[in-house]
Design a protein around this nucleic acid. Structure first.
Length: 215
DNA sequence: CTCCCGATAT
DNA sequence: ATATCAGGAG
């Protein structure tokens, strides 16, 4: 049986190879400050980052900050967010989070997991994005649909629940790698290891993939 | 567990 | 036609 140390070594070699291809991987969500990143990440649920960027451009022009978003007309806000899907839920989350920022955090985005996940529409994944990509203070690993899929294909986890996958990744990788780990897996998942049609011929870690030989 | 939900690729 | 896209709440 593989020991934990062996699995760590193997996992870290995979990340090293992937980082060699995309050393500058980071969020593709367009943002100028923590607030814009937080809102963009809330909107990114089950939606491509490309579509989110198209929407946030107009969104932040119309509502530059939490104060403007907090007092926005719900129907007008929904119309702007519609292309991202789940637009009623997202409108509520975005507006309620803006109000919570004003009422409880002086209009500033907090920099702890506990505070971030207390915001409506913000759970561990969104909090991890903001903590890692803006504050550089990771308290965990971003686990989205790409990270889940690649973690399974690359043998980093056997679980299906994001919380358990995150725990596995946190035990396999040192904290110093948690930020690039999420960014690199997501970029690799988008560009090469796609859900439907993975380009295994172009994959630098195909030799270390559990999926090797499958379709 | 179900529901939220539009846009795009296959 | 269907799967998938930087998930979260009830």
């Amino acid at each position: 049986m593989d020991s934990l140390e062996q699995r760590k070594k193997r996992a870290r070699s995979v990340l090293t190879t992937l980082m060699k291809r995309t050393p500058d991987a980071r969020t593709a969500l367009r943002h100028r400050d923590a607030f814009e990143l937080l809102i963009a990440t809330i909107l990114s649920a089950q939606c491509t980052d490309k579509k989110v960027n198209e929407v946030t451009e107009g969104l932040f022009e119309r509502y530059p900050g939490p104060a403007e978003l907090a007092s926005a007309d719900p129907e007008e806000l929904q119309a702007i967010l519609r292309p991202t899907g789940f637009f009623r839920q997202k409108s509520k989350s975005v507006q309620a989070t803006s109000i919570a920022l004003l009422e409880r955090f002086g209009g500033q985005v907090p920099d702890t997991m506990e505070a971030l996940t207390s915001l409506p529409g913000v759970a561990r994944k969104t909090a991890n994005v903001v903590l890692g990509q803006w504050f550089g203070k990771p308290e965990g690993v971003v686990v989205d649909t790409h990270v889940r899929r690649l973690s399974q294909r690359l043998g980093f986890t056997e679980h299906d629940e994001p919380e358990k996958i995150e725990a596995d990744l946190m035990s396999l990788f040192p904290k110093s790698k948690w930020i690039p780990l999420g960014s690199v897996l997501i970029l690799h998942g988008r560009e090469i290891c796609a859900a439907r049609k993975p380009a295994c011929g172009e994959c630098p870690v195909a030799d270390r993939c559990l999926r090797m030989g499958v379709s």
